[in-house]
């Protein structure tokens, strides 16, 4: 699995695809690879389950975190001006986590002048188990809407097919096959197939997309327990 080469990686997708989970994992993987990394949570759609909720974990891994106003909890969030530094700071690689839906991708329109100069990838995250991603046709429709709203062309597909805690290796395999079809239909490369680290062995040699192993960071409040807390021990300490 190769980590992103471009200076900026932008992630879009329907909500529930797990794009935020992937964004957090991608940024941490890049930082652990020794790169200067930033993550920008530019979700203007949803005030719940946001990547900036994991700021402390991200910062601990060395990732600089940018977020919308009100620490992501505002009903109508604003985009602070410091976010624009992402496009200028060439010493740092950045991951941009957009809000769910084509509406969430609209925020890129604001940065159109900066993006004209920037070296970036724009990936579309899909989860076959989400009703809005249930067919290739529906998914490609969403993908095109996302391009229209963001005024940018997508450059790749990321398969993150999952069923939350009930995910099986089979779900990921079926999602991988589906994502390959979507990628073909959209004329885009399949960048990764994402799955929890525990599935790595079971899926070896069977996937069309390079496997990107993740840990679950976007846990629910009741999933904080001494055994499951793991790297969230700090949350329990507070």
């Amino acid at each position: 699995m190769n980590l992103p080469e471009k200076q900026i990686t932008i992630l879009a997708g329907h909500y529930g695809t797990g794009k935020t989970e992937f964004a957090v994992n991608l940024a941490i993987a890049m930082a652990r690879d020794g790169r200067k990394t930033a993550l920008a949570d530019l979700d203007i759609i949803n005030p719940y389950f946001r990547s900036c909720e994991r700021s402390r974990e991200l910062e601990k891994a060395g990732v600089k975190v940018y977020m919308t106003s009100g620490r992501g909890k505002a009903d109508i969030p604003a985009l602070p001006p410091d976010i624009a530094s992402l496009f200028i700071d060439h010493s740092r690689q950045s991951v941009i986590d957009l809000g769910g839906d084509p509406a969430g991708a609209r925020v890129l329109g604001f940065y159109e002048p900066q993006l004209e100069e920037a070296d970036f990838d724009f990936w579309f995250v899909i989860n076959r188990n989400r009703p809005e991603n249930a067919t290739v046709g529906k998914t490609v429709h969403y993908l095109r809407q996302t391009q229209a709203m963001s005024r940018q062309d997508l450059t790749g597909i990321v398969n993150n097919t999952h069923l939350g805690r009930e995910t099986t290796a089979d779900d990921i395999l079926r999602g991988d096959e589906f994502a390959a079809q979507v990628a073909r239909a959209a004329g885009l490369p399949l960048i990764y197939t994402v799955g929890e680290r525990r599935f790595e062995q079971a899926l070896k040699g069977q996937l069309k997309g390079p496997f990107f192993p993740i840990d679950i960071y976007m846990i629910k409040p009741w999933e904080l327990s001494s055994e499951e807390g793991g790297h969230f021990a700090w949350l329990l300490e507070e």
Partner: peptide
């Protein structure tokens, strides 16, 4: 088959 749904949806 099970699908992943958001509570409000």
């Amino acid at each position: 088959a099970k699908e992943l749904w958001k509570g409000n949806e």
